[in-house]
Write a protein that binds this DNA or RNA. Structure first.
Length: 377
RNA sequence: GCACAGGUGGGUGAGUGGUUAAAGCCAACAGACUGUAAAUCUGUCCCUCCUAGCGAGGUACGGAGGUUCGAAUCCUCCCCUGUGCA
């Protein structure tokens, strides 16, 4: 899932995202709540209509933002008081108000309000934090069940340019695709699914307990949160691997906030179904490009006269048309086009990586093939 | 020719007697980036040497000379640039 925090995937338009075959975007409750505001969101017919993205969207609950705003927040059992990074004004989020906001935003998938435990944290702290997230999960679920019918939006019909169906999984599921496009044309009602979030720090037994107790609350899908918060990469892998196995395989398993192309393949092989990460888009804007031949820092002087394609094995419009020398020039010149092209490429690379993973899984009829990720990247 | 103003490291531009190899910004070069307070942040950025240190030498604020324990900073002459007046 490309990340479009403020109702925009930085650097690229919705047309391009459709062309790339993006299936779902991530938006952010905290940011949209502050600007343009939930009332505005409702007036605009929900986020999909507002941002002209007639496809799935997932919103994060604001739990992580509150975590990353650590100097501007105060956490209590009831919820979190925090200050806006925009103007310093004071606000309050609770499981209930986060649900309220996410229902107002109207995304297809919304997240329970959790506390992302910081790293490092001692055992007592992790336990307390995990317990609170569990209580917040119940409150999120309760409020959601009482109020979910309040999402009144019908998704606007699909954009004029038909979505390309060239990618592997679209061919594989053309029936479902046709059906969903038909629905979109007619304006499909938005129904929301609520996902729970597993916490528990880096402690495997706490992760197990958190998973089991979150499952008891009963959500439509389950996320692994609280990772990629500064811990060593190897530890992330260990915790993911040991947590995934406690989550039901017949529901989406969503690992929040990771990773590099190599890592997302590994996580997929562990059984993770969904991931989101700012890395492809942010790195793109900072001149770091992911290719089949490894990372390329396009700002480097060595590419000044490099007439080759960014990635000879990539079929994206950027690699098909422009040289590394030109991309470097655009970056050095601070041109907006540099951000656009770099983002298009990185997203393509990520999406293609996942397409190959899905294709491999399809071929094996659900049997996981550990060799998938090792051939490439 | 006269009168003002001014010449500082790749650029711009602070600094007007001593912790100044010389602020800041830009450029250049390298690194970071993982549920986005991020078109951001960090480092390097005169030369040489080593035991690699807030180390040792050297060179440096238009040029030459001078004053001083000490000069980018003060004095003298010269060169150059801008503006105004002849």
């Amino acid at each position: 899932m490309p990340v479009g925090t403020v109702a925009s995937v930085k650097g690229v338009s919705q047309d391009i995202l459709e062309e790339l075959g993006v299936q779902i975007l991530l938006g952010n409750t905290y940011h949209l709540y502050l600007r343009p505001g939930i009332d505005q969101m409702r007036r605009m017919g929900g986020l999909q209509n507002f941002m002209a993205w007639p496809h799935p969207i997932l919103t994060d609950s604001g739990g992580f933002q509150v975590f990353s705003l650590n100097e501007l927040r105060k956490v209590t059992e009831d919820g979190v008081t925090f200050r806006s990074h925009l103007d310093g004004s004071s606000h309050f989020f609770s499981p209930e108000s986060s649900m309220e906001a996410q229902i107002g935003i109207g995304a297809d998938i919304i997240m329970a309000f959790d506390e992302c435990t910081e790293y490092p944290a001692d055992a007592v702290r992790v336990r307390k934090s995990m317990e609170m997230t569990l209580r917040w999960a119940e409150r999120s679920k309760k409020y959601f069940e009482e109020r979910k019918h309040e999402v009144p939006w019908r998704r606007r019909q699909s954009s004029a340019v038909p979505r390309q169906v060239s990618s592997l999984e679209f061919q594989a599921s053309s029936d479902a695709e046709t059906r969903s496009q038909k629905l979109e044309t007619e304006g499909s009602p938005v129904t929301q699914a609520l996902f729970g979030i597993v916490q528990g720090g880096m402690d495997k037994s706490l992760r197990k307990e958190s998973a089991e107790r979150t499952i008891e609350v009963d959500f439509a899908g389950y996320a692994i949160g609280g990772l990629s918060v500064g811990e060593p990469r190897a530890l992330t892998h260990e915790v993911v691997e040991s947590t995934v196995e406690h989550l039901p395989a017949d529901k989406p398993r969503y690992l929040m906030g990771v990773g590099t192309p190599e890592e997302i393949v590994q996580y997929a092989l562990m059984g993770v179904d969904m991931m989101d990460c700012v890395l492809p888009t942010r790195a793109a804007r900072h001149g770091l490009l992911f290719t089949s031949e490894g990372k390329i820092s396009i700002k480097q002087a060595r590419y000044a006269s490099d007439a080759s394609a960014l990635d000879p094995n990539c079929g994206c419009r950027v690699c098909a048309r422009y040289t590394r020398a030109y991309l470097r020039h655009l970056y050095a010149s601070n041109e907006v086009l540099a951000q656009v092209l770099n983002t298009v490429h990185n997203l393509t690379y990520y999406l293609d990586t996942m397409k190959r993973v899905r294709h491999s899984i399809t071929l094996e009829e659900g049997v996981r093939v550990p060799s998938v990720g090792r051939a490439k990247p």
